[in-house]
């Protein structure tokens, strides 16, 4: 990097931090897990965009692109994951944003989790997953990206 680069200032505010979008897809209102995760991620030093409940796949994909996030974290308890998550992935493709990683948490049976992963979901977390493990997996997904990890 050249000597007139702004990096020389070492300015923390001008250096990219990992940004994560947390959303609840579908119609269920159980946002406890999503909120706990969003808050924990903030405390780990991530920048978290929280868009709350009743989000459609398209709304989430567009928000993620506008925010230029690294990761989308989806929480779902309604059982509609096999319909809604593939739709989300499809929308990301259409927006030329397949590089945004998708992780999913919620009530998701084991077989469904395997199918979701084969469709391009990076990680599926059950409700009992410790936050530490989630952060560890997120950091793995961020490896190679030019962002500060936690």
């Amino acid at each position: 990097m050249s000597s007139n680069s702004l990096e020389i200032v070492g300015a923390p505010g001008l250096k990219r931090r990992a940004k994560i979008l947390v959303a609840k897809i579908g119609l269920d209102g159980h946002d406890r897990g999503a909120k706990v995760i969003a808050r924990a991620l903030k405390e780990y030093g991530f920048e978290v965009v929280y868009i709350g409940i009743r989000q459609t796949p398209e709304m989430i994909a567009k928000a993620a692109v506008q925010e230029d996030v690294d990761i989308i974290g989806i929480s779902i308890h309604s059982g509609a994951h096999m319909v809604l998550i593939p739709e989300l992935i499809e929308h990301l493709k259409r927006l030329n944003a397949e590089d945004i990683k998708v992780i999913v948490g919620g009530i998701i049976p084991w077989e469904d989790a395997q199918r979701l992963k084969s469709m391009g979901v990076s990680e599926v977390f059950t409700p009992d997953t410790p936050i530490e493990v989630i952060v560890e997996k997120i950091n793995k997904l961020l490896a190679g990206k030019n962002v500060e990890q936690k």
């Binding site: 903030k42 920048e47 929280y50 709304m59």
Partner: peptide, 22 residues
């Protein structure tokens, strides 16, 4: 705001504008 300690941030204002995201 960013957290002065971790520099993490919780950005939630978008929630109320999400209806325009399409």
């Amino acid at each position: 705001p960013s957290s002065p300690f971790t520099l993490g941030s919780f950005m939630g204002n978008r929630i109320r504008m999400q209806s325009h995201s399409l």
